[in-house]
């Protein structure tokens, strides 16, 4: 399946702004991280189509999902 991955803040220095990934059916966020070689500890907020996975690395992905990945951030 095809997954669009969007990176933000300093993750862009290493992974660029956006990337298209091909993953086998039934893949999870953990599989995606493995494929793009992204260590989980660099991230804090992961959204799939805008919905927070709430730390669930076994969150199942579907074809054409958009995954937005942020490092720990704060603001006000």
């Amino acid at each position: 399946m095809n997954i669009k991955v969007k990176f933000f803040a300093d993750l862009r220095n290493r992974f660029g702004k956006e990337s298209a990934c091909r993953l086998p059916e039934g893949s999870t966020i953990a599989d995606l991280f493995k494929q793009v070689e992204l260590p989980e500890e660099l991230t804090r907020i992961v959204l799939v189509n805008g919905k927070s996975i709430e730390g669930n690395m076994n969150y199942g992905l579907c074809d054409k999902d958009t995954v937005s990945i942020f490092p720990p951030v704060g603001g006000g």
């Binding site: 803040a9 942020f70 720990p72």
Partner: peptide, 21 residues
């Protein structure tokens, strides 16, 4: 990583994309 890295590098406006996504 928030006060030592993200805020110095991007300021508070780093949240624009977070909240929008």
């Amino acid at each position: 990583p928030v006060t030592g890295k993200a805020l110095p590098a991007y300021g508070t406006a780093v949240l624009v994309n977070v909240m929008n996504e």
